[in-house]
Design a protein around this nucleic acid. Structure first.
Lengths: 344, 344
DNA sequence: CTGAAAGCGCTAACAT
DNA sequence: ATGTTAGCGCTTTCAG
């Protein structure tokens, strides 16, 4: 367990000083070519690695971007992360990923840790529990770029990359109406999360625009998990006048509903229509395929880092931006009555 | 963009010194109760956070565990991570997750970054490209606990948490034989990765044990992706004597095969049997359900951190351990000829 | 119980 | 083109 090689060790061995080594290693213009070569060779030979702690302490920041998401095993979030990584790597930044499991406490803890390790920026999608958020001001005060994506805070002056969830939901519900479903229920998520609020709004607007009366009993709010979806539909089917379709704010609860319908032998899409949200990979794999709304995760990720780099590269303070992408309805078997091409 | 609050700021305000603040904050026994209270209160009020860079530089290590996996959007890996997080949090450690996308270069880069930021330990599952690995000695030399899980290095003295992949494959193939499939092909992964090598061995042993001749043409090696699975099966079906079942080393290529079979109207499991590996969530969702081998990801994660904590808590150097878990065959529709209970 | 002082490894302004 | 020096914020030994 020897100590790690430092810049001093290299300096001693080359009869020079730490400064020269430091500069040579960063390809500083004022260092002779021959010296640079010697230094780089020796560094390699001795397997030298910068101590990012020391460098970061000095400079106040390290070339790492912190990403905080509710869950990493959602295809939506993992595509966002892939998008973030692509650009970040290109620019020589590393990405560390933290998952909150939708707990506000973990979100706060990770923010503290990441801040205290000197990350250069923070890209965050809120946990389900995070209705209000207290850390924004502090992050701003530290001058660290902060970008929210997908699940964003709404009332503050911050950067946001999000989908037009209202439009996505609107399209989804209109599609169900086009396929002659008439009593369309909605699985809603917590109202304090923008995406769920907006999806509900889109649902309501689509009904109103089509002169369909809104019935509160057809709207069920939950954590939109698979189990919640199954339970919600079970409850709805007890109604004297049950729905003939569900627009779910999440693919998972749509899947729960689908499994319930299969169990009960209710045929989808003939007797019941189903649309989910997020276009998770499994939606294409279940039978019938689950119609869903694709949110272009990769793009969201790319925009998020892009804004980050703009923030650190601009000298003068930029105004916070909100970038809104348009989601896309992906039609599959679960909602296509009449002409079904979909088989898988 | 004010500077962040330091321990010195607090010291000045309380007419004491940094040492006292530092000690009070860590609940050092030699600090008076009243002082501790004052310090903790003020720290809270001023929103003080330790500068982990500075503390880490001093101590040489930070309370963070680095986890490196090929991909985070596999259910298998994300359960492992969940297992790791559980225990790590309990002990006050943070977990940062990095994904290599199966690229050796990224693996090396992340190891460098994590080492240079002073993580306390490294939990690694190798990328597909990583046949030989050069960083082990260095990590050991630095005295940082190193634990491989699932995809491990085989020839060195390191900690390993892995599944008995041979046994899992053996069970899977025997199950196919029990269901009267006779020409069983195998989708193999790269041979330099232990898990794929062992799954192939299990396949071969199961055939041999049942007096079935091994035919090289029935073994197709690929990156076991979805596309590879489809392509591999397509190729196999061109043979003059095509197989009637596939044991795939990965759920993804099994899925590719399933989609191909559906397209061609070959009925599963009647005319063709299919078994995958890893028990990804989607295996329960496709129709017919895909028989697969569950690897107890959560347990693997828990063991991995457990070994990490043992390493840092023991004073004397412990010998590297290898922990082998037994996987479990999950039987679903895709391989159950005769008595099919499975419908989903 | 508290303070003084040194130093972790690196960078950058300021020499030369 | 290279060296000198100071200091980032914290912990910890040693002294009181």
């Amino acid at each position: 367990m020897k100590k790690r090689v430092t810049i001093q060790d290299l300096a001693k061995e080359l009869n020079t000083t730490a400064s020269t080594i430091s500069r040579a290693l960063k390809d500083h213009p004022a260092i002779s070519k021959s010296m640079k070569e010697k230094v780089v060779d020796l560094a390699q030979k001795r397997n030298y690695k910068v101590n990012a702690l020391a460098a970061g302490l000095r400079v106040g920041r390290i070339k790492t971007i912190g990403v905080i998401v509710p869950n990493i095993n959602r295809d939506f979030f993992s595509s966002i992360i892939a998008g973030i990584e692509d650009l970040a790597f290109e620019k020589g930044y590393n990405v560390v990923i933290c998952q909150t499991h939708d707990k506000m406490a973990r979100e706060q803890q990770y923010i503290n840790t990441l801040l205290s390790t000197g990350v250069s920026g923070l890209l965050i999608s809120l946990s389900l529990e995070s209705s209000s958020v207290s850390y924004i001001d502090e992050i701003k005060r530290l001058g660290i770029p902060l970008i929210f994506f997908d699940r964003v805070v709404e009332d503050s002056q911050v950067n946001r990359i999000q989908n037009n969830d209202k439009a996505g939901a609107y399209k989804a519900v209109c599609h169900l109406l086009d396929n002659n479903y008439r009593r369309i229920a909605h699985f809603a998520g917590p109202d304090h999360i923008n995406v769920y609020k907006d999806r509900k709004l889109g649902y309501l607007e689509a009904l109103t625009a089509n002169n369909i009366r809104i019935e509160e009993e057809l709207i069920i709010t939950s954590d939109v998990s698979l189990d919640a979806g199954r339970a919600s539909l079970e409850k709805l089917m007890q109604l004297s006048n049950p729905p003939d379709a569900v627009f779910s704010a999440s693919d998972y609860s749509a899947l729960g509903a689908l499994l319930y319908l299969k169990e009960k032998g209710i045929s989808v899409p003939q007797d019941f229509g189903l649309v989910g949200y997020s276009n998770e990979n499994f939606t294409a794999l279940v039978t019938p395929g689950l119609t869903s709304v694709d949110q272009h995760g990769m793009e969201i990720g790319k925009y998020a880092v892009k804004v980050f780099f703009e923030e650190i590269e601009e000298k003068e303070k930029m105004l916070p931006r909100t970038i809104v992408l348009d989601p896309e309805l992906i039609i599959r078997g679960s909602s296509s009555r009449g002409e079904q091409k979909e088989t898988s």
